[in-house]
Design a protein around this nucleic acid. Structure first.
Length: 271
DNA sequence: TCGGTTGTTATTGT
DNA sequence: GACAATAACAACCG
C-alpha cells in the first residue's frame, strides 16, 4: 500500500474532486470491497454531498451529508482512487460519478483494499482509527523514545506498528535507515537521544518530500508499470550505494525486506 | 515456475 | 506476557 504521503495525496485529490458534491450514479463492481458494512449503506452515503476529506495514518475517510455519514477507505497494497472519463477502467472495484467532474474510481489490482461505512460520530472512536499512534510530524525525539518504551523489538518493527506511530511503511524504513546509517536490525536500546531526534526528523522530512515529489492525479507504484524507482535504496539490491558505491544488500524480517548498505549501515554493538 | 511486491491480522511457537 | 515467524488475504510482474 501507499504510505502516509501517498494517502495524503489521494486525500487532497478527493478534496479537489469531490467536496461539495454528491455522486449521481454508483457502480459497485466488487462487493468484497465493502466490509463489514452493507453495500446499501455505502450507496446511501454516496448520494449525499461530501463535505470533508480526512486522513489519519494510512486511513482515509470522507464525511458526507447533514447526517454525517463517513466512508472509511484503506488502500492496502495496490489501491488508488483516480478520476476517469468512464467507470470501466481496469481493476475498478467501485466507481461513483461526480457531476461535471467525472468518475471517481477505486482501483485495486490485488483487491486487498477496504471500504467501510460508519454511522455518524463513530469515525474517530472506531477501531483502528482510535488505536493509531501519532502522526510522524507530531513526534519529536523524546516522544518517539517514550513510545518505544522498553520494547526489545527491532526499531523497524516498532515503526511499522501503526499503534506506535501512524503512517510509516516498509519503504520509509529502508530509506530513512539508509539516510541515518542505521542497521536494519537495530534495537531501541542501541539508540541514543541524538539518534531519536534524527529519526523523528528524518521521518517527517521523508514524508514531506514525497508529498511534493509524488503529487499527481494518480499514484504510481514503483513495482507496477514503467514508473521508475525514485528511492535511494528500496528495491535496489546489488546496485551501488549512492553514497559509497558498495553493493546494496537486502535483509528480511517477518517477510518484510529492508534494503541497506552494509558499509554505511554497520551493525551496532549491543547497548 | 519462482520469488518478489509500499498492508494488516490471526495463529502458532519460543 | 513479549516477541518473532508464518500464512493468509489476492493478484500482478519479471
Amino acid at each position: 500500500m501507499p504510505e502516509l504521503a501517498e494517502v495524503e495525496i489521494v486525500r487532497r485529490n478527493l478534496e479537489r474532486w469531490w467536496i461539495g458534491r454528491a455522486a449521481q450514479e454508483v457502480i459497485v463492481a466488487d462487493d468484497d470491497l465493502i466490509v463489514p458494512s452493507s453495500r446499501e449503506a455505502v450507496i446511501t452515503a454516496l448520494s449525499e454531498p461530501a463535505y470533508a476529506a480526512m486522513r489519519r495514518g494510512k486511513h482515509l475517510w470522507v464525511e458526507l451529508g447533514p447526517s454525517r455519514h463517513a466512508l472509511l477507505f484503506h488502500l492496502r497494497m495496490t489501491g488508488k482512487i483516480t478520476l476517469e472519463d468512464t467507470p470501466q477502467a481496469r481493476f475498478t472495484r467501485l466507481a461513483w460519478l461526480i457531476p461535471e467532474v467525472g468518475w471517481l474510481c477505486f482501483k485495486d489490482s490485488r483487491r486487498l483494499g477496504t471500504l467501510e461505512h460508519l454511522a455518524p460520530g463513530l469515525i474517530t472512536s472506531s477501531a483502528p482509527i482510535n488505536k493509531l499512534g501519532p502522526e510522524p510530524d507530531a513526534l519529536d525525539g523524546p516522544s518517539l523514545k517514550l513510545r518505544f518504551g522498553r520494547s526489545a523489538r527491532r526499531v523497524k518493527e516498532l515503526l511499522l506498528d501503526q499503534r506506535v506511530i501512524a503512517g510509516v511503511g516498509n519503504i520509509a524504513v529502508s530509506e530513512v535507515f539508509w539516510q541515518l546509517g542505521l542497521h536494519p536490525s537495530v534495537r531501541p536500546k542501541q539508540l541514543d537521544d541524538d539518534d531519536y531526534q534524527r529519526l523523528s526528523d528524518a521521518l517527517t522530512s521523508h514524508f514531506a518530500q514525497l508529498l511534493v515529489s509524488e503529487q499527481a492525479d494518480e499514484l504510481h507504484y514503483v513495482n507496477q508499470g514503467k514508473a521508475q524507482n525514485p528511492f535511494m535504496v528500496y528495491l535496489r539490491e546489488g546496485q551501488p550505494c549512492p553514497r559509497c558505491q558498495a553493493p546494496l544488500e537486502r535483509m528480511t524480517f517477518g517477510g518484510r525486506s529492508t534494503y541497506y548498505c552494509p558499509r554505511c549501515q554497520p551493525a551496532r554493538a549491543p547497548a
